[in-house]
Computed example of a mutant assay.
Amino acid sequence: MQTRDDIFETLRSALVELFEIEPERVTLEANLYQDLEIDSIDAVDLIDHIKRKTGKKIAAEEFKSVRTVNDVVDAVYRLVNSAA
């Protein structure tokens, strides 16, 4: 899971699997809260899923500014490509 496309596909699969969202609704522009109806509990589940997939913990503070699927892709991309 290194490229933005890989991250997007993994994220799309997670949203479909975890929250039963139709794959065609998951676009980079989709708003997590308004378009995909993700609530705060779902967001925690998504953060946990990302942690399991990447082996790295995403900071809750960083996730607070996330609004769209593209924002999540950017946050995960920074996380997996950081020199940690």
Rank of each mutant, 00 (worst) to 15 (best):
R12E: 03
E37K: 13
D42K: 04
S65C: 07
D42F: 05
N70E: 15
E37M: 14
H49I: 06
E17R: 05
I41N: 05
I41T: 07
K56H: 11
L28A: 06
K57P: 01
I38E: 00
V73Y: 00
Y77M: 03
S82W: 07
A60T: 11
A14M: 08
D45L: 09
M1V: 10
I47Q: 14
R4P: 03
A30V: 01
I38D: 06
I47Y: 00
T27M: 04
L18A: 06
R25I: 06
L18E: 12
S65W: 08
I41L: 15
L32Y: 01
E62L: 09
A59Y: 12
A83K: 13
D39T: 02
L18K: 13
I38S: 05
V66C: 11
Q34E: 15
I47H: 01
I41H: 06
K64T: 09
D6N: 12
P23G: 09
L15E: 01
A60V: 08
A75P: 01
E29D: 15
E20P: 05
V66I: 11
F8Y: 07
E22K: 14
V26N: 00
A83L: 12
L32D: 08
V66Y: 03
Y77I: 07
K56Y: 14
D6H: 04
V80H: 01
Y33A: 09
V73R: 05
V44G: 11
T3N: 15
S82I: 04
V73W: 00
F63D: 06
V26D: 00
D5C: 05
S13H: 05
I50W: 02
H49Q: 10
E9V: 01
E22V: 13
A83T: 05
F8Q: 03
F8C: 04
I38T: 06
K53Q: 10
